[in-house]
């Protein structure tokens, strides 16, 4: 039972982290290796603000701060290497180093803890559930549902889908695609900051915050075949593998197992997990 709960919790964490990555990758073809850097900036902002103005205010301000950072990075750096995937990866990787080390300069390398805004636990199905962790699961589900609803039912979502499907045609339909792309990147970064704070109370906080979450999230994005359901399936599968290995074998092997699963899945399904993949063959 504890394993199951742990799997659910890890899935939630992974989904929270990978959504930001996936939006930015899907729309801008930017592999944002600075995602954890933004999460770290977010969580330290939360640490500063939280005790004074409350946890949730801290989370919102963190989102604003990382959003602004994202806007600056997009305008000053990433725009210059647009559509060159390797260059954006290296640039965001450099950015991640700079952010992490700046935090270390300011706050030192020591681990910190963040107070949880929701204490206590309750019993259900013969086991105890911590309220805050349940809240995170709910948040992850809400995020996925919101993304689905947003892209499916709103004009903003249609705009985003148009840009993802065919940027040229979106331009021909009167959409300012570069504005949409910029906004998306900023939103992805803001989401990273917000999620950074959300995960604060359940994690040890150090400048290398969330470093261990980046790789599973990226592997999941890689496996997903660029669809929302693919993302969810990949995130959950990899989380289950990770927790399962950590529980029945050694945590160290879990990191290797996650990579192996991703590579094997992509070996079998080169287009990733996408039930509609039959339409997407290339010549």
């Amino acid at each position: 039972m504890t394993v199951l709960i742990s799997m659910i919790n890890t899935s939630a964490t992974t989904l929270l982290v990978l959504m930001g990555l996936a939006i930015v990758l899907g729309l801008m073809h930017i592999v944002n290796l600075a995602q954890t850097g933004f999460m770290a900036v977010g969580v330290y902002t939360g640490l500063e603000i939280g005790p004074r103005l409350g946890f949730w205010t801290g989370a919102l301000i963190a989102a604003v701060v990382t959003g602004l950072l994202g806007a600056a990075a997009e305008t000053l750096l990433l725009r210059r290497v647009r559509e060159r995937m390797l260059e954006t990866m290296l640039a965001t990787w450099g950015l991640s180093l700079v952010l992490t080390q700046l935090i270390q300069l300011r706050y030192g390398p020591d681990s910190r803890v963040m107070a949880t805004p929701l204490h206590g636990s309750f019993a259900l199905f013969g086991t105890t559930w911590q309220k805050y962790r349940v809240l995170l699961v709910v948040a992850a589900v809400l995020l996925v549902v919101a993304m689905w609803a947003l892209t499916r039912f709103t004009r903003v979502g249609l705009r985003v889908r148009m840009c993802m499907a065919d940027p040229d045609l979106a331009e021909d339909s009167g959409i300012n695609t570069s504005l949409v792309r910029q906004t998306t990147f900023v939103l992805g970064c803001a989401l990273a900051g917000f999620v950074g704070v959300l995960l604060g109370p359940i994690s040890g906080i150090s400048p290398n915050y969330a470093g261990n979450l980046l790789i599973p999230a990226f592997l999941a994005v890689m496996m997903s075949g660029r669809t929302l359901h693919g993302l969810v399936i990949s995130g959950v599968v990899l989380s289950i593998v990770q927790v399962g290995f950590a529980y029945w074998s050694k945590p160290a092997y879990a990191t290797v197992a996650v990579i192996a699963v991703a590579v094997v899945v992509l070996g079998v399904l080169p287009d990733g997990i996408d039930v509609r993949r039959f339409r997407r063959a290339h010549v």
Partner: peptide, 28 residues
């Protein structure tokens, strides 16, 4: 050799292996 192979794939896998190596090292 995967048909999916591109810079993203290579970067993520090599990065992931290096991380995994550090974890395995520390825990063994």
């Amino acid at each position: 050799s995967s048909r999916r192979s591109n810079d993203f794939y290579i970067v993520v896998v090599t990065l992931a292996l290096a991380t995994a190596a550090v974890t395995v090292y520390d825990q063994t």
